[in-house]
Computed example of a mutant assay.
Amino acid sequence: MPSLSLTRTVQVLALLALSLLLLYVGRLFLVPLVFAAILAMLLAPVARQLERWGAGRIVSGLLCVLLLLAFMGGICWAIGAQAANISEQLPQIQQKVQVLLQQAQHWIQQRFGVAPREQIQFVEEQVAKFGQSANRYLTTSLKGVAGLLGGLVLVLLYLFFMLWGRHKFREFFLRLAPSEQHQEVNQMLQEIMRVGGQYLSGRLLSVLFLTVVYGVGFLVIGLKNALLLALIAALPTLVPYVGAYVGAIFPLIMAMVGGSAGQLLPTLGVILFAQAVDNNVVEPLVMGSRLNLSPIFTIIAVVLGELLWGIPGMILFEPLTAILRIVCSHVPALHPYAFLLADEAHTPQWIKRVKSKSKQLL
């Protein structure tokens, strides 16, 4: 019996290692495919509604793709329109940066005894070293942009064909199982579709909430280009945990170099307030326990996703882990793994009451 248990453990670890290797090796193929699958889960209700109104599958799929492109284009237009205002303020920003640099040089000289000339010489040496590798960084950046555009085209193509053939994909999974298990498989597929779509919609609603609160807060404290700063601060929060810190950097820098000296702390206060409300009110309401993932495995999913797929993995591995938990919960032999991945915390009563009242109103 111990030898059998050891053999089973080795088999599970070997399967896990092989799966991670395949995920890493096939990331260029899998990332656009998984992005398209999550987006298809989000847009499937829209496609069904269009088909009820008389549109065919091809037309409904094309309209969903166009809707996604319009949404992305609107975000890019808003950022571009606001970014033009910053270019007009560059002379003032440069003057403020020079003043801050002079203050920093004076502080370093007093604190460490390094003269400003030596500081400038050190910076020039670092710039020279950076310039030697600038061509390599530029080439890498251009490849990254080309890869991003190519990946976007693949995502849109995959998305269209997934929406068009979603009924066939469902029938395929049903045919893999015996007829007596069709009800169980159908329930599992419905849960996966619901979790995938609700996760992404919840993230987008969270970003929208943060954009509005940031924008209003930045306008109240008099921060210039409030809408642009709000968008830049909110969009990185699509990445769990890390995104909130990354998004906060740019508004704080702009408050320091583009605003007055008294705007830094109010800007930080707006960011902290918005994040506190989003984490404790908005996300529990719009997402709640739909993923039903243990916090430790949520963090593991984000870290593992970054290691294997980079930033896209940080976004995708959380819903993928939730889908894995659903599959394990519907396979008797994998129930222990579903129990391990599941969240042991219960949904707060106030969230249940709000949701029940909203359903009654609707």
Rank of each mutant, 00 (worst) to 15 (best):
G310T: 14
L42M: 12
R27A: 04
Q110T: 14
A84F: 12
A230D: 06
L235H: 07
V212H: 01
L304F: 09
P178S: 10
L62K: 00
A244C: 11
L148H: 09
A47E: 04
V354D: 00
C328D: 01
V212Q: 05
S19H: 06
L159Y: 00
P251Q: 05
P116A: 12
Q132S: 08
Q92L: 11
E344W: 04
G61I: 02
K143R: 13
E51C: 09
A128F: 03
M193Y: 11
L163S: 03
V127H: 09
L324P: 00
A261H: 14
L208M: 13
Q126G: 09
I86D: 06
E125K: 13
P116R: 02
V25K: 09
T211F: 01
L205H: 01
P45V: 09
M1D: 08
F161Y: 08
L252Y: 08
L304I: 12
E191P: 03
A274W: 02
L264E: 08
L320E: 07
G80W: 10
F160Q: 07
G165P: 04
L154V: 13
L39A: 06
A115K: 13
L174Y: 08
G313E: 00
I75V: 14
T347R: 11
T298N: 06
V153M: 10
T347C: 03
L138Y: 14
G310N: 13
Q198N: 12
K359Q: 15
S356F: 07
G165F: 12
L42A: 09
S294N: 15
L163T: 04
S5N: 08
M254K: 08
A244V: 15
L341Y: 05
P45R: 10
I299M: 12
L20V: 13
A146P: 04
L304H: 05
Q181C: 01
Y337W: 15
F172S: 11
I79R: 00
I253D: 05
A230P: 01
R194H: 13
L6K: 12
P348C: 03
L304M: 14
A274G: 08
T7S: 15
S87P: 01
P319F: 07
L43K: 05
L18D: 05
E306M: 13
S294T: 04
K352F: 04
R290M: 07
F218V: 10
L15W: 11
A81W: 03
L340M: 12
F35E: 06
A333F: 05
L90M: 13
Q105C: 09
T9E: 11
G262C: 02
R111E: 14
P251A: 04
E344A: 15
L308D: 01
L210M: 13
R194D: 14
P2N: 15
A115L: 10
I326S: 03
L13G: 10
L210S: 02
V185I: 14
Q11G: 14
Y245W: 13
K224V: 00
Q275H: 12
G61A: 08
V65L: 08
G247T: 02
L231I: 13
K168P: 05
P266F: 02
S260P: 05
V242C: 09
D343G: 01
H182V: 13
I38N: 00
P348I: 01
V302H: 00
I86F: 06
L50E: 01
V46Q: 06
G144E: 07
